[in-house]
Design a protein around this nucleic acid. Structure first.
Length: 447
RNA sequence: GCGGCUAUAGUUCAGUGGCAGAACGCCGCUCUGUGGCAGCGGAUGUCGUGGGUUCGACCCCCACUAGCCGCCCCA
């Protein structure tokens, strides 16, 4: 912070500088918001630790090619939603390269897994991350250009058990526990298997064949999807097309015996844990890398049309797509912004405040002469672990009380008497009780 | 990227082609070491930005920007 010692004289003629604002789709989280964010994040961290996950922090930008190869060139995310720029070479030893703000984190995590040869440990890697992601979409409630995801990946060589249906079920059970622990009430788990890469090829062919004679009866979007990505037709919300969509072949009928057995074991483990789910044969994910188990948790409170709270699935071929060893994996990403919106909407419905808790004490020096002693007392109490704010001796007592009541549970009056005797006057707002407390016993009395 | 709605005080919102408003909040006083209630008083602001129409625009028109809703997409 720099202090301006010689303020320029203000002239009425000086045109005001244009106000700078957070750019479209980004926002500031102010101190009235961040306690809830921190609560969500610390709850997630503690829970992930119980499941043996460790935190990974990957760069916020990566080479564009990573996302092109990992997420898929043809996906909307890569083809039209990325913040990409050309980073020019600055020296002969540097190469110009295309860089991109990460639109999701799984590709980066798998890149790190390959780069650091984490598979060579032979152990299953359980990694989680919390951080911002960037997509150039039209902003809306629950959809921002910089948004936050809390995600986790389970990945490793086959010998580590990374392909086991137990991993899928463990992830889903963990998510159910997290949402429950956070107090999300009306979550719903939608579950599907999109099969192995080979299953998908056969299913896609069947879909195209089934769509060919009927697609012209569908809406424009679905006609386009029928050509470019038939799976996405299943996702369509177009009401008029629903009847036709229901006649299309089901992915379940195209799963190989292995894929089906895998999925059945996932379901069996979920049943054993008592985690409720809804099979949704039309649940397909937008990223190319998903295979077999795919899922989505939705909520009905607070999000409007953006009701997907989190999504994820298995990505058995992603490592190879990025030039790495065979390393099956499964992961998810929670839309933290949406999670917060849901919690806030619930709190509002319940008439519960999400405000930060009050400070333990507010110290009110009664005259400016008491200011130094007030700060010294604050230092002592803070060192003892209390949360403390200090007023100012120029404030009138009434103002001190007003401020103190909005901020803190107790007010400590520090005037000449108190300074002389080292016995402080403490008033508790909740009870209205006022007592004299020796300085040495103050910290204990305020807890 | 497409369509619709919206933008006025710190906040929530009224408002009329002719002086910019209310409530809450904020500040002061009544009240010099005991607040919250009450009474009285006070300050709020480029009426989102830029153009246009008009004697005159916060109001009508256009463009832009941003937010919200739906689509698309996704978390």
């Amino acid at each position: 912070m720099t202090e301006s010692t010689s303020p320029a004289p203000k002239s009425n003629k000086t045109p005001a500088r244009p106000t700078l604002k957070a750019v479209r789709g980004t926002r500031d989280l102010l101190p009235d918001q961040t306690p809830l964010w921190n609560h969500v994040e610390s709850t997630a961290r503690a829970l992930f630790a119980r499941y043996g996950f460790g935190e990974i922090r990957t760069p916020i930008f990566e080479s564009t090619e990573l996302f092109a190869r990992g997420v898929g060139e043809e996906t909307d995310i890569v083809s039209k939603e990325m913040f990409t720029w050309e980073d020019r070479a600055r020296a002969a030893s540097e190469k110009a390269q295309s860089l991109t703000l990460r639109p999701e984190s799984t590709a980066g995590v798998v890149r790190a897994y390959i780069e650091h040869q984490l598979g060579n440990t032979g152990n299953l890697q359980k990694l989680y991350y919390i951080g911002p992601q960037f997509r150039r979409e039209r902003p809306q409630r629950g959809r921002y250009r910089q948004f936050w995801q809390i995600g986790a990946e389970v990945i490793g060589p086959q010998s580590s058990g990374s392909e086991s249906p137990l991993r899928d079920a463990e992830i889903l059970e963990m998510l159910a526990s997290l949402l429950t622990e956070l107090g999300i009430r009306d979550w719903r788990l939608e579950l599907n298997s999109v099969g192995s890469a080979e299953d998908r090829v056969r299913y896609n062919a069947a879909l195209r064949e089934a769509l060919a004679p009927i697609k012209h009866q569908m809406c424009e979007d679905n006609q386009r999807r029928a050509e470019t990505n038939p799976l996405r037709v299943l996702d369509s919300k177009d009401e008029a097309d629903q009847a036709l969509i229901n006649t299309l072949p089901k992915i379940a009928d195209y799963l190989s015996p292995e894929s089906k057995a895998h999925f059945d074991q996932v379901l069996a483990a979920l049943d054993a844990c008592g985690v409720p789910y809804h099979l949704n044969p039309r649940l397909v994910r937008g990223l190319d890398y998903y295979t077999r188990t795919t899922f989505e948790f939705t909520v009905t409170t607070g999000l409007g049309t953006q009701n997907a709270l989190l999504g994820g699935g298995r990505y058995d071929g992603l490592s190879e797509m990025l030039g790495g060893p065979r390393a099956p994996g499964i992961g998810f990403a929670i839309g933290e912004d949406r999670l917060i919106l849901t919690l806030q909407a619930q709190a509002e419905a319940d008439n519960i405040s999400t405000a930060a808790p009050k400070l333990d004490a507010y110290i009110a020096p009664l005259t400016p002469a008491q200011n130094p002693a007030a700060l010294s007392l604050a230092r002592e109490l803070r060192a003892a672990g209390l949360t403390v704010e200090v007023g100012d001796g120029t404030f009138k007592l009434r103002k001190s009380f007003d401020i103190a009541d909005t901020l803190a549970r107790h007010i400590i009056l520090l005037g000449e008497d108190e300074a002389a005797t080292n016995i402080l006057t403490v008033k508790t707002f909740a009870s209205g009780e006022q007592t004299k407390v020796p300085r040495a016993k103050l910290a204990g009395a305020l807890r």
